[in-house]
Computed example of a mutant assay.
Amino acid sequence: MDHLQVHQYFMNKPEATVSQPFGEGVDVYKVKDKMFATLSLGKHMGDKHNETWRINLKCEPDEAQALRDIFPSVLPGYHMNKRLWNTVLLDGSIPQGEIERMIDNSYLLVVKKMPKKAQTSLLLHL
C-alpha cells in the first residue's frame, strides 16, 4: 500500500477524522477524538536521502512484538509508547491485506476503550 491508499483506508473508517496537531507533515487520524493512527514521511535508517512513508498503529503488546519479529518493516512505535504502538514502514514489503488488518486492529482497540454507547454506534457501521 502507498500513503494515498493508506490515507483513504483510514478515512473510510466510521467517524474518522484527520488533523495535524503535532505540526505540518504528521497526519493524525482519530475516531471520536481518540488517536488510532499517524501517517508521515520520514528518514529511513538515518539516510537523509531515503525517505519512507510510515504509519503508527496501536497494537496489543504481545502482537506488537510478534509483528516486529515477523516483518523487518515493523518497528517499535516512533515517538509513541513502544509497548502499545508499532511503526510500519510503507516500503512495499508487507502485503496490503496485512497492513489493512493492522489498521483495522488499531481502530478497534481504540473503539473498545470507549463507552458502550459510542462503541455500539461505531461498530454498527463496520
Score class of each variant (00 low, 15 high):
P14T: 02
P14G: 11
A16T: 12
T17D: 12
S19I: 02
S19R: 03
P21R: 03
F22D: 04
F22R: 10
G23K: 14
E24L: 09
V26G: 02
V26E: 02
V26T: 14
D27R: 02
K34N: 13
K34S: 09
K34Y: 07
M35H: 05
M35I: 12
F36E: 10
F36R: 00
F36N: 09
F36I: 10
T38P: 00
L39I: 06
S40L: 15
G42D: 12
K43L: 15
K43N: 14
H44G: 05
H44T: 11
M45I: 04
M45C: 11
G46L: 14
G46F: 07
D47G: 04
D47A: 10
D47M: 13
K48A: 15
K48V: 13
H49A: 15
T52L: 09
W53Q: 00
I55V: 15
I55G: 04
L57N: 05
C59S: 12
E60M: 06
D62T: 06
D62K: 10
E63Y: 12
E63H: 11
E63W: 11
A64F: 00
Q65I: 11
A66T: 10
A66K: 11
L67F: 12
R68F: 09
D69N: 13
F71N: 03
S73N: 12
V74T: 01
V74G: 07
L75Y: 05
L75T: 07
P76Y: 02
P76D: 07
H79M: 05
M80K: 06
K82L: 09
N86G: 06
T87H: 02
T87W: 01
T87E: 04
V88D: 04
L89Y: 09
D91K: 03
S93E: 01
P95V: 08
P95I: 05
Q96G: 01
Q96C: 00
E98D: 12
E98Y: 03
E98H: 05
E100P: 00
R101L: 05
I103K: 00
D104S: 11
N105V: 01
S106L: 04
Y107Q: 09
L108R: 14
L109G: 07
V110N: 11
V110H: 07
K113C: 12
K113L: 12
K113D: 08
K113G: 04
K113Q: 15
P115E: 14
P115C: 08
P115D: 14
K117R: 15
A118K: 11
A118F: 10
A118H: 14
T120S: 15
S121M: 12
L122Y: 08
L123T: 07
H125A: 15
L126R: 04
L126M: 08
